[in-house]
Design a protein around this nucleic acid. Structure first.
Lengths: 343, 343
DNA sequence: TTGTATGCGTTATCAC
DNA sequence: GTGATAACGCATACAA
């Protein structure tokens, strides 16, 4: 037979459907006797409430959508991991949308999430420094009655809560660290530069250079696509074009792995000949050879904070719009050292 | 005003609700004229069908649940990434459950997915070599009318489709590679050994040793918890306890990073003094120092295959129970070399 | 081709 | 306390 419904439970318990509903939801006052009967009946039938029907009737889905650029990216996957834990704890269901870094897919998924009448949505992205094609869609979500939280994604002049790490300051302090070691020819390996992928980090990089009276040479800024292979290739190419560089600021640790390899293959010692500093502080950074200086990003806390903000936003009727910027920490290990080149 | 319903559309178009429904679902025959009217009305109102109501009425949710041990684990995250892409393409929604490697949570999530009346579920796990506490729950899912696919998780004597990589054979060939290089004191760094986390790899390891007439020394089998830090710690400890080992088979590449570090710190050269071979072939392995010999696991194809099997399983009424074992490939790089120790 | 009527499984608002 | 009963928004079998 098919799955038991509330009607089946009520019939077996000898009560009305509404009574059974009240009991199973711990709502109104019910006599202990009938309460026990209903619970026994539900137990006996192995009754599992139909969440779909419940949603339709209650006008609340208890679903939140999580929109993420790519689960294949450990940085985002970690955020999602933390995020979903809290959300699940709160009894919510999570519909996951992986946009695969595709703007069109993102828009499509937004429609889908709307059709699903989700109560809230967490949008994870990357600061681009420019208007994102889907920004307008995001702005409209609250009007549709959907609670929204942005993680690592900016939306200017908006009351929507935004949560992100202070990557600009992180980049600035990383580059200042290199400068303080005497480096002046400092390259930057970014990711998705044309799409603004490492926009804030680039701005921090440039700021730090300017503060040190070092001219910004856009020829020293290359795009490694955030992958080890990209970091490797782009560094090889950079080394040929600009053999004089003594330090690299790399926009994430994953790329740094490829960067270190390229350096090593070309006979450059790290940090004696060239210093390298990464970004993110992924678990493996500490164990690279040499261990990687980097900037620690509190990835997990980003996810936790997003969950908390959304949760409270879901409870309150108030449109609380707090924006949280997490500080970032410079981690100095063995891949950065004094500049040994006289200029 | 609230969101428009099908009734609103029908009213504006001057037709019956059912007609509007038929038009928007491309079902029965409708005259081009009314079709256009309905579409225009829907357009004008910005109508988005309510997926919840649709599900309740159609007795099909078009939702599939994905249950994964941990999204923080890149191996699983990659599988999920591939998986969800196909599923989303097929117009399905995905409810994600991260069990955080917790058996109880997994059981709880299974109830939740049942309440959601999902059409199908993809269970991702790890071969444990033993009965899993939740195995019984899995066996019952099909009875509830839920299509089920298992990825990297075994369920003995079951018609449920199972998809996994041939990790046992991979481990065997990895260890045989070490043996062919003259190694005899070969340690294994596994993960979650007590929970059977690297069960198949361990079996392959032992088989290869036995084939080479090398006695299995359980003292050489340690648990690194699948993390770089774990690999590092456990290797340091192993080196103290058993300085004579000349090769290590490591159950995943992530741990290998820590293993290499520990070796380097203790003055061992790789591969001159000690050979190391990993597992998974993650993108960074090629760029480690030295580049890591490993076993390539077609992670992405696992996800793709899971999607395809579930999709066809969702269409057919037939209980097609195909089990797919993906072959695995030995990748020899610079971290393995001839044994230079006379025994 | 189009419309009517019923049902999907709950929640929620009332009377009783 | 308890029980009818009306939504919830849509799909679908059937009638017209």
């Amino acid at each position: 037979m098919s799955r038991p419904t509330l009607a089946d439970v009520a019939r077996l318990a000898g009560v009305a459907i509404s009574t059974a509903s009240v009991v199973l939801n711990n709502k109104g006052r019910v006599s202990p006797a009938t309460r026990a009967q209903v619970q026994a009946a539900a137990q006996a039938l192995g009754y599992q409430p139909n969440a779909v029907a419940r949603r339709l009737a209650s006008r609340r889905t208890n679903i939140v959508a999580v929109v993420v650029p790519s689960l294949a990216n450990p940085f985002f996957a970690t955020i999602v991991h933390e995020l979903q834990g809290r959300l699940l704890d709160a009894g919510l269901d999570i519909i996951m949308y992986d946009t695969e870094d595709d703007v069109q897919l993102e828009a499509k998924h937004t429609e889908s999430l709307l059709r699903n009448r989700v109560d809230g949505v967490v949008f994870i992205g990357q600061h681009t420094g420019m208007e994102h094609p889907n920004d307008q869609i995001l702005r409209e979500l609250p009007e549709q009655g959907v609670k929204l939280v942005l993680v690592e994604r900016e939306l200017s002049e908006s009351p929507i809560p935004q949560i992100y790490a202070d990557k600009e300051e992180g980049a600035r302090s990383a580059v200042r660290h290199l400068v303080s070691l005497g480096h002046r020819r400092i390259a930057m390996v970014g990711g998705f530069l044309s799409m603004g992928g490492s926009f804030l980090r680039r701005r921090g990089y440039e700021t730090a250079l300017q503060e040190a009276k070092i001219p910004v040479d856009s020829d020293l800024i290359v795009d490694g696509g955030f992958t080890p292979l990209g970091g490797y290739q782009v560094t090889r190419e950079l080394l040929l074009r600009r053999p004089g560089i003594t330090a690299l600021f790399v926009a994430n640790d994953l790329m740094s792995i490829g960067v270190l390899k390229a350096l090593q293959e070309s006979g450059k010692r790290v940090p004696e000949d060239v210093s390298v500093i990464g970004f993110d502080n992924i678990p493996e950074s500490r164990f690279l050879n040499p261990s990687l200086s980097t900037v620690d990003v509190p990835t997990r806390r980003l996810g936790q904070a997003a969950a908390e903000v959304l949760l409270s936003s879901l409870e309150d009727k108030t449109t609380n719009s707090r924006t949280i910027v997490f500080p970032v920490e410079l981690i100095i290990r063995d891949s950065t050292g004094p500049c040994n080149v006289n200029i």
